[in-house]
Design a protein around this nucleic acid. Structure first.
Length: 284
DNA sequence: ATCTGCGCATTCGACCTAGT
DNA sequence: ACTAGGTCGAATGCGCAGAT
């Protein structure tokens, strides 16, 4: 199985998996790891950066101390099929770190460098991004995203708060107030996910309209850049034809779906020729 | 039609606690 | 002792519904 993870196309849909680093990195260690990942050159066996303690706000002794403590921490991963654990593996972050004059030369462990090759386990679940996550819960939501979402399409899905907690592996009785949940869980998680899945935004689902009503769920939207362009054009056209529009949501939907497969100019011509059917014309 | 009380959301900051 | 995660109190504001 291990060689299978390294070499073949890993099918995310078929397997379940867990990844963890233990003990958890401290905030400072996380910052330093991000530094190493930023300078990490996927193409080369060794990466390097010039150490400037002014820029990093860190002495070389401190850096060494943190690397030492990070080296005692282990990344573990398990692959499951259903309930059955097929493989578990343990590896560390660095293969070697060299301090030489003002340079830091380093080689990340084989498994992290494998993320460069398309299709293998480490690449498919984007281990380099996961290592940058600040919130411990981000990984769980990320897993849900990569298992359910095609990167080509825009998508949305809804989770009620109870299910959402289940996904994140948070006991139901934690974070009873929504604001606490939002501030301590939701916002940090979304900040992390922005690193890997651009253009995510959320909508709060309420039991009724208005401010004084309970939030029951979260709706996730992730949009690809194509959608942003289509959305922009759609709004532009709606503005131009605003006098003819009776129901904006229907108009938006019609224009949007046409613009998805046609150019802005074509869409405009289409509206000019089919104004009646696209918008319900205001009757006098 | 306007007033009033209630429930919940939204805040901020302070406190508590378990693990290094 | 320090950190990060988790909890809580109190102030404030909004919308709804029932009372006036």
């Amino acid at each position: 199985m291990y060689y299978f993870l390294k070499k073949q196309d890993f099918n995310l849909e078929k397997y379940d998996f867990d990844i963890d680093i233990s003990p958890r990195l401290t905030k400072k260690e996380q910052e330093i790891l991000n530094l190493f990942l930023t300078y990490f050159d996927l193409e080369k066996e060794y990466s390097e950066f010039i150490f400037d303690f002014k820029v990093f706000n860190l002495t070389i002794e401190e850096l060494k101390k943190y690397i030492y403590s990070m080296n005692k921490k282990v990344i573990s991963a398990s692959i499951y099929k259903g309930e059955k654990e097929l493989t578990s593996l343990y590896f560390s972050i660095f293969n070697i770190v060299v301090f030489q004059e003002n340079k830091v030369i380093y080689k990340l462990s084989e498994e992290l460098r494998l993320a460069h090759n398309y299709g293998n386990f480490f690449n498919r679940f984007n281990i380099l991004a996961i290592l940058r996550f600040k919130s411990m819960y981000s990984y769980n939501l990320f897993k849900l995203f990569i298992k359910n979402v095609s990167p080509k399409k825009e998508f949305e899905f809804e989770l009620n708060l109870i299910d959402f907690k289940k996904v994140l592996n948070i006991p139901e009785d934690k974070y009873k107030r929504f604001y606490d949940f939002e501030a301590k869980v939701l916002k940090p998680v979304l900040r992390d996910l922005e690193l890997v899945t651009p253009h995510i935004y959320i909508e709060k689902i309420k039991s009724q309209k208005g401010k004084g009503s309970k939030i029951t769920g979260i709706k996730f939207h992730a949009i690809n850049p194509f959608h942003i362009e289509v959305n922009k054009d759609t709004n532009l056209l709606l503005k131009e034809f605003t006098d003819y529009i009776e129901d904006f949501s229907i108009a938006y939907e019609n224009v949007y779906s046409y613009r998805k497969t046609h150019s802005l100019l074509d869409t405009r011509n289409y509206i000019l020729q089919n104004t009646d059917s696209i918008f319900s014309i205001k009757k006098k």
